[in-house]
Design a binder for these strands. Sequence first.
DNA 1: GATCATTTTGCAACCGGTTGCAATTTTTTT
DNA 2: AAAAAAATTGCAACCGGTTGCAAAATGATC
Lengths: 335, 335
Amino acid sequence: MAITLKDVAEKAGVSRSAVSRTFTEGASVSDKTRSKVERAAAELGYSPNALASSLTTGRTKLIGLVSNNFHNPLFLEVFDLFTRGLQDRGLRPLLVNLSEETDPVSSIRMLRQYSVDGVLVASSTLPPSFAEAFKDAGVPVVHSFGRYTSSPHVHVVGIDNVACGRMAAEGLIARGYRKVAFLGGPEKATSTQDRAMGFLSALSEHPEIDVSVSYASAYSFDAGRVEMTKQLMSNHAEAYFCGDDVIAIGALSAANDAGLSVPDDVGLIGLNDMEMASWQNIELTTIRQPISEIIGASIDLVVGTIEEPHRHPETRLFPCRLIERHTLRPLKASA
Amino acid sequence: MAITLKDVAEKAGVSRSAVSRTFTEGASVSDKTRSKVERAAAELGYSPNALASSLTTGRTKLIGLVSNNFHNPLFLEVFDLFTRGLQDRGLRPLLVNLSEETDPVSSIRMLRQYSVDGVLVASSTLPPSFAEAFKDAGVPVVHSFGRYTSSPHVHVVGIDNVACGRMAAEGLIARGYRKVAFLGGPEKATSTQDRAMGFLSALSEHPEIDVSVSYASAYSFDAGRVEMTKQLMSNHAEAYFCGDDVIAIGALSAANDAGLSVPDDVGLIGLNDMEMASWQNIELTTIRQPISEIIGASIDLVVGTIEEPHRHPETRLFPCRLIERHTLRPLKASA
DNA sequence: GATCATTTTGCAACCGGTTGCAATTTTTTT
DNA sequence: AAAAAAATTGCAACCGGTTGCAAAATGATC
């Protein structure tokens, strides 16, 4: 059926080793045999079987890309960057959709069966223990968009969610809001917890400012809209820090439907700066998460760990910055 | 390092074949040895190496998932459904991001190196020749969201874009629009061409209606917005059939910014019915593409072709239907 | 209990490659 | 031109499994 090494060896009149060596970087082959082999390979249309070679080399160049965020538009950008970044280094993403699942065991088993060289866990909602289970199973792993811990057990790349929460709080204060609220994602998501913590801690230094906290049931438009609608029915805040852009957009829709003007009647700030946030029918003020850097660093780190398995766990956090658009009122002239 | 068949065989005191057989569906093993093996395997934490076995069985359960649509939010839903659908059948998606590339040769080589059992090409913009190249290389392939041809060379699953164009035209006519336009995606995308053809052909039966055609440079918000802005500067139409929801949303934004009210001053109808189309700040009237069915059928077809390689190429087209929301004025009481 | 049919088992070869080692060839040195 | 050093080559074993085949064990039949 398919052309194998042996076919090429016979056609070129050399040993199988010679063929293998011409396709192996840095192996010892003379120019003469190399060209004989290359000609034969080209004529037969041979290309080496990556899986067979993985058996002896121990490397498949497969990277498990595990995620449970298939409903947040940000993740389309995330997948685009991950797949491109991996391909550029000759690595192949084996995609795992966790959907409801939060138990790592079946994913681990599957990814080990396919001998992935490493795993990228792309999720802001999974607990640290998820990625740790991969590490315990001996698989190099990086948790992207994961949670910072002071003594990490696995590599984590992401943002400082606590600092983002604080940045949001300070942004609202600086714009003169006196009654503010956090409208988070799912309460059990680690990113939500950290963002809430930062937000509240910054506000604890401003006792004159009124704070409240609520949670949307998911990182989704509907959840944001539902929760905001609920807020608007009672004594609502002047400005909301939403745990995610898509929640903020849902909240924006609820405010508009309630006849409120944004940012005059109610201010909104999101987090992520996904593509859609800059759409001119949205113009969401938000905190930008540098996903391209996060993904680049994640890939570097997983590759580094494949080469050097006992590397010490590292946390790489990238700074975020506030992107001024039209859903918060402008900064007061003098702070 | 990792536990192999041999380790389990030694621990259980049986031959390697016996171990292999207990992990092979339908192989002949006595209950006694099976339980011995299972106990040993459990104690050692053994799980079989899928790649090694693929060497002899010829099946990897890897499916190449090739796409060039990493900027259209619809495709996040598409990837979600594909990955879930494949996982549910024990298959593993190996993701290939084509980005700019439209030449299949490097993808084909790579996917053959990994011995994928089949390939799913998920793209409405790639030409039929792309998927055909896989078929010619002997790889079972299905082109999802692809173009219908009367004598197809490969399996195609999707919608009848010509019929959709016609449906859009009829929808606009039925709502009393007298001056209509097609605002397509990139002119060279096969889906755009077909939608335009259907739209124009339906309108050719209504010479009293004024028609024009223009193209956005991409299936994206910005491209839709830019093209619509251009339209609005001259003598614009009363209603636009946009080649895609995300283009329609861009066009909607342009119309709003120009101070026009939708649907009173200008009507818009999209195509796809992606999640966002139903958001309450958008409420886009659109033609629904049944992506879940398309994806299910695509997977069925690729699996079927793996089992029966010389199966005749099939085209499966699913019906679309118009989803009434708020960007076209209501139907006239009597047609 | 002997005979025959059926099931279970292990041997050994194979899937498509890689690699250590010793033999061979080529190049360099003297 | 011979000797020494370096580069190239093929052999054979191995990576972690699967599978056809014949031998061994079990079960059925008389």
